[in-house]
Design a protein around this nucleic acid. Sequence first.
DNA 1: GGCATATAGTTGTTTATGCAACTAAACAAA
DNA 2: TTTGTTTAGTTGCATAAACAACTATATGCC
Lengths: 146, 146
Amino acid sequence: MPNNQFKKGELYSFITGKASTAIGRRLQKNFKQANIEITIEQWSVLYHLWKVDGMSQQELCDATFRDKPSITRLVDNLEKLKLVKRNASREDRRKNLIVLSPEGKELEEHCMEVANTTLNEALQGVTNGQVEIAKEVLQMVYDNLK
Amino acid sequence: MPNNQFKKGELYSFITGKASTAIGRRLQKNFKQANIEITIEQWSVLYHLWKVDGMSQQELCDATFRDKPSITRLVDNLEKLKLVKRNASREDRRKNLIVLSPEGKELEEHCMEVANTTLNEALQGVTNGQVEIAKEVLQMVYDNLK
DNA sequence: GGCATATAGTTGTTTATGCAACTAAACAAA
DNA sequence: TTTGTTTAGTTGCATAAACAACTATATGCC
């Protein structure tokens, strides 16, 4: 039975995530304008390290909703940029603990400022009540599919 | 002034589009299970051609929110799969009109069934009223940033 | 007609994703 | 201790995105 909550064009927009694509592009653009030379994917890893430094790659997978090869390569690139370092774990030699360099730590304040600005741009004219419901729906969608 | 509608973790989810990523992955998985051997990006192009066959690449850019190189390569791959064909336009020799092959046309029904099923999976337990508001918010976000 | 500019599309480079196959270390059971 | 299984991470390959530089055609203006 076809779902008729969505007209054809809307179905497309919803499935392809037009809005979140737009937010990502704007964030990337805002980083560039602020002379922050990282990608939003790299930002998404740093974001979690700023909260808890020294996470393992597997923990970063879970936090960022990315698979292991993606994190391997994001960490590769962040290491090239000297923003993080892989430290072998003492307790479990299979694990790499990813720790921020001083340069990586320094980025936090500026990046989070830009992220908040971007979110404010995105949510112009949207009421708190609407945002709450949208967040709920998106969370339910995620829970339904995970 | 920082936006305090979002707690930290929520900000991350919203910006990175956790929900729409999950929908995309599920759609891809459902295509695979249905033995439909295309990517969701290829689907997004076919989707618009099923509505209006013979669009130019530029029109596909606008419809799919992708840039020109992306469409060039998606059309390349769709041509390799023999699902579409580039026809030079008579009126404007700069333009390629992208037309569906019989195989491309055949895919429509099955693909749209799978897309609708996927959307139903995603929206389990979400009321029509909530969906309406979420759609509005996402549209406003898109309009704010485009 | 001739020149500047805009539009349509392609190509090259870097970064990232998804999937499968792989290595190495840890753990569990006999 | 050895054997099998799970977990952590890496590598290879195909597809895709973002950006810049490019070619070719069309158009507007003098």
